[in-house]
């Protein structure tokens, strides 16, 4: 479903992504982990081209995301990739409901009534049916992130990308967001998720990609990765996590 082929990216002389070769299969849940600054977020942002790359290919459903294409083609492609940000990025001037309604209505061409109906269904699904008319500023961080997930789901994407969805949250709110994500996993959603929630990774991931310094150093099943990590850097990373 998502395939990285020899992806390289540089900021000036600094290499952010180096020779990335990996793929996320349909229905698979991939968790990307690694220390800060290892290129995880940059990698996930190349999938919908929020970040450009220097060389290589990122294929989504067989289509090269970074090929030359018109604005309309890129917008269509992006509308099929659900993306959830670390800082939620809800539109603060719109209610929770309107945040969700806007894109199916204006991008997918649903009628406003249809979009509202879909939005209400999704709000119920993330447990916020009663907060439809609240503005983002009136919601807690966890609630905002759940609305953001519903907003991405409203486009009915075949794949969901999560860029550290719980890192900006107070500890007691992490659980409610992970619960929603767990629900998606159970529904068979293809997911690529950058996260520091290792217990979540162990529980739901099919594969774990461990990154450092712009490279994927290890890909393994959670059992292998947490049980017997192969790469010394991964061993050190896990040891540090456990000592905390």
């Amino acid at each position: 479903m998502i395939q990285f082929r020899d992806v390289n990216k540089w900021y000036g002389h600094f290499c952010v992504l180096a020779d990335i070769n990996a793929q996320v299969r349909k229905g698979e849940v991939v968790v990307v982990c690694g220390p800060s600054g290892s290129g995880k977020s940059t990698l996930i942002r190349t999938v919908n081209r929020l970040e450009e790359i220097r060389s290589g290919e990122v294929l989504f459903d067989g289509q090269n995301v970074h090929a030359k294409m018109t604005g309309a083609q890129l917008n269509h492609l992006r509308s099929r990739i659900g993306f959830v940000f670390q800082s939620f990025n809800l539109f603060p001037h719109l209610s929770a409901l309107d945040n969700i309604v806007l894109s199916p209505w204006r991008v997918n061409g649903l009628s406003r009534a249809e979009a509202r109906e879909r939005a209400m269904r999704l709000l119920e699904r993330v447990g916020l049916g009663d907060r439809a008319h609240s503005y983002p500023a009136q919601l807690s961080g966890g609630q905002q992130q759940r609305v953001a997930i519903a907003r991405a789901l409203a486009m009915e994407p075949p794949v969901m990308l999560f860029d550290e969805p719980t890192s900006a949250l107070d500890p007691e709110m992490v659980g409610e967001v992970l619960a929603v994500m767990r629900g998606l996993v159970n529904d068979g959603m293809t997911m690529m998720c950058v996260t520091h929630e290792m217990s979540f990774a162990r529980e739901v991931a099919d594969r774990i990609w461990f990154m450092d310094a712009g490279r994927i150093l290890e890909t393994a099943t959670p059992a292998d990765f947490f049980g017997s990590p192969q790469h010394p850097r991964a061993q050190r990373f896990l040891a540090e996590l456990r000592s905390r």
Binding site: G71, I81, F83, F85, N89, L102, R106
Partner: peptide
């Protein structure tokens, strides 16, 4: 915040639409 434009683009809005529906209403207010 740059994330506002990112979020709008990630949802598939074109630049002019993102400006019109997301950025300008906030900026002008």
């Amino acid at each position: 915040p740059a994330g506002q434009m990112d979020a709008a683009r990630a949802l598939g809005h074109s630049y002019p639409r993102a400006m019109w529906f997301v950025i300008l209403p906030q900026a002008l207010y």
